[in-house]
Amino acid sequence: MNLSVCAETVFLDLPLAERVAVLHAAGFGVEIWDWWTKDLDELAATGATFTSMTGYVEGELVDPDGADRLLASAERSIAASRALGRPVLNLHGTGLDDRGLPVRPVEVVTGPMWLAAERTLRRVAELGERHDVVFVLENLNRAVDHPGTPFAAAADVRALVAAVDSPHLRVNLDLYHAQIGEGNLIELIGACAPWLGEVQVADVPGRCEPGTGELNHPALAAALHAVGYRGVVALEAFASGDSRAAVEAFRAAWTV
């Protein structure tokens, strides 16, 4: 598996480009979030391998106008991603504000909403095919970090991705969010395996590095390896103390 680290959450005392350079020098890939706030040429100059970035700026899956805005901003994201190679482009069930909360909260997802989301994601996958990029749809937890987000559970994400059934739309299985929202992570890994495009990790509770919470990260790594996953596993976690120790704890826990 290819290990990557989110530069938004570690080495926070350094400018972003320096964080990226430190992670690259340590042998990790790098993921970022909102590309439109960053100097992408400066980041590219570090020589790092970028594995993931946010794949839309605005929009949502279920509203026709929101879907059009999502597709337009996804196309902008594709153009921006070229500076960083070919990172996967991350999506959520709806647009999130700067606090991670849904722009339009949804408490009950109806049947028509499911069908609308599938139609929008088919358009996303077609866009990805035209430009030879991969979008990933991430599960989120509603209990702690993202209340009111529709299609948040990993089971929901898996169902939508499986319905579209395109190599240009995959699941971003975030095991931190899944532990809070669903649990039973080894079974969940097996269920999502055919559609995985990325895996993100952090410990629970606290969203810090492996070894700070309740998750058995080596067992999860072994389960992913057993189902044949050889893609990116990214640490999207805050350091409980020293960032270098945190990323090394991640490496030790997730090297199979």
Rank of each mutant, 00 (worst) to 15 (best):
P150K: 15
G183H: 05
A143D: 13
A159W: 07
S166Q: 08
N172F: 00
D156P: 02
N184S: 14
R142M: 09
V144N: 04
V157Y: 09
E182Y: 06
R170Y: 06
A155H: 04
A153V: 00
V164A: 05
F135V: 13
T149N: 08
N184P: 02
A152T: 01
V144C: 08
A178S: 15
R158M: 11
V171E: 08
N184Q: 13
D174V: 04
L185R: 13
D145C: 11
V171N: 08
N184K: 10
L160P: 06
P150G: 12
G148N: 10
A191P: 00
G183M: 11
E138F: 03
P167I: 00
V164E: 03
L188E: 02
A162N: 04
D156H: 15
E187I: 01
L175T: 01
I186K: 01
V161Y: 03
D156Q: 10
P147Y: 04
H168P: 05
A153C: 02
L188I: 02
H146N: 15
D145P: 03
G190D: 03
A191Y: 04
A152S: 09
G148M: 14
A191M: 12
S166E: 11
R170T: 08
F151W: 04
A191K: 14
L137Y: 10
A159P: 11
N184Y: 05
H146R: 14
A143G: 06
A191D: 09
L173H: 01
Y176H: 15
A152G: 06
I189Y: 11
N141T: 08
V157C: 13
A159M: 11
L188P: 02
P150F: 12
N139C: 13
E182A: 11
A153F: 08
A159L: 07
P147W: 01
F151V: 08
L175A: 09
E182F: 03
E187C: 04
I186H: 02
N172L: 15
A155S: 12
E182N: 06
A159V: 07
I189P: 09
A162Q: 12
E138R: 05
D174N: 15
H146L: 06
L140K: 09
N141A: 03
A152C: 11
D145V: 05
I180S: 00
D156E: 09
F135Y: 11
E182L: 09
A153G: 08
P147K: 14
A154F: 11
P167M: 07
R142G: 10
Y176N: 06
I180Q: 02
F135T: 00
V144F: 04
G190T: 03
G183Q: 03
L169V: 12
